[in-house]
Design a protein around this nucleic acid. Structure first.
Lengths: 161, 161
DNA sequence: CCGCATCCTCCAGGATACTG
DNA sequence: CAGTATCCTGGAGGATGCGG
């Protein structure tokens, strides 16, 4: 595994060459990777999905998203705002009121997000089935392995007699 | 298991009248939320995207995905296999060879993933621009705040004289 | 080559308390 | 109400070594 030279950034140095062309740059420092990591965040997904329907206040979001802490909601909203996906509007009233809504950029993302959610909803039964099947298979294998181990142990014992 | 097979949304339990109608259940224990968290994993996204082209061996994947540790790759592959999204084929050769490929279920997911990637590629410039704009705005605000603080400090000092 | 087990680090993220 | 600041912990995830 020693190549030493182009090690730090993977095989990024060579472009076309022997390696087959990927759909996108899979390097860590790749722009798309960074954005994808942000967009693929579970809280972000939820916020974007919720804001698609109408603008929402901070507390509304907090109540709607079960399990999110105030800290994480703040951070998520800040990130999304920084990326230009949502806008933040402060109403200088008392008590203060802050509205969040999707920007047009955010709205374009939502349809994609929505597709992901739809896919999940559509296939959740298949996934559940696959999981139980997998677990059963693993359990069976493990038991088989244990049985075999017991078998060998028995043979060893009888050999000593 | 049986939830009436109504695919309208992943509904999990109690109803709160004050809660407005969501597109989907946002509670933590909701099935869809769980799956989404898995699917939204950055490594999973990469693996699925890469496997769409052709089946790949363990080491191929590891080399292609910059920054992934062997441990995380193994875990990711196991998760995806458990969810029925990829299949794992062991060739009992020496040295051993293990091929991973998308299942048909995984293939359906890929198109959605692909849409997400495409969106990211398409809008990465807008996002980059939004970020620099945001950072500039924040910097300006911070400097304004500092200036104001200095102002008040000066006033306080002169008041003491 | 594939991958599990072990150890260890580090930081995402929750809980809490305080402000404007 | 809508945050910010602080502390603290669990678990994600990297490094290493062994085993089939």
């Amino acid at each position: 595994m020693e190549d030493g030279t182009s090690e730090s950034l993977g095989y990024c140095g060579d472009t076309d060459a022997d390696y087959d062309v990927l759909q996108w740059d899979t390097r860590e420092d790749c722009e798309v990777r960074q954005i994808l990591d942000r967009v693929a965040d579970k809280w972000s997904l939820l916020v974007i999905a919720l804001l698609d329907r109408r603008s929402l206040r901070f507390t509304e979001l907090r109540r709607m998203i079960d399990g999110i802490s105030q800290r994480m909601l703040t951070r998520t909203l800040r990130h999304l705002e920084r990326d230009g996906l949502i806008s933040r509007t402060v109403h200088p009233t008392i008590p203060p009121r802050v509205d969040y809504e999707l920007t047009s950029l955010g709205a374009t993302l939502h349809s994609t997000i929505r597709a992901l959610v739809t896919w999940t909803e559509t296939h959740q039964n298949e996934i559940a089935a696959a999981r139980t099947a997998y677990d059963a298979r693993m359990l069976a294998e493990q038991q088989a392995a244990e049985a075999e181990a017991a078998e060998r142990a028995e043979i060893a014992r009888s050999a000593l007699r």
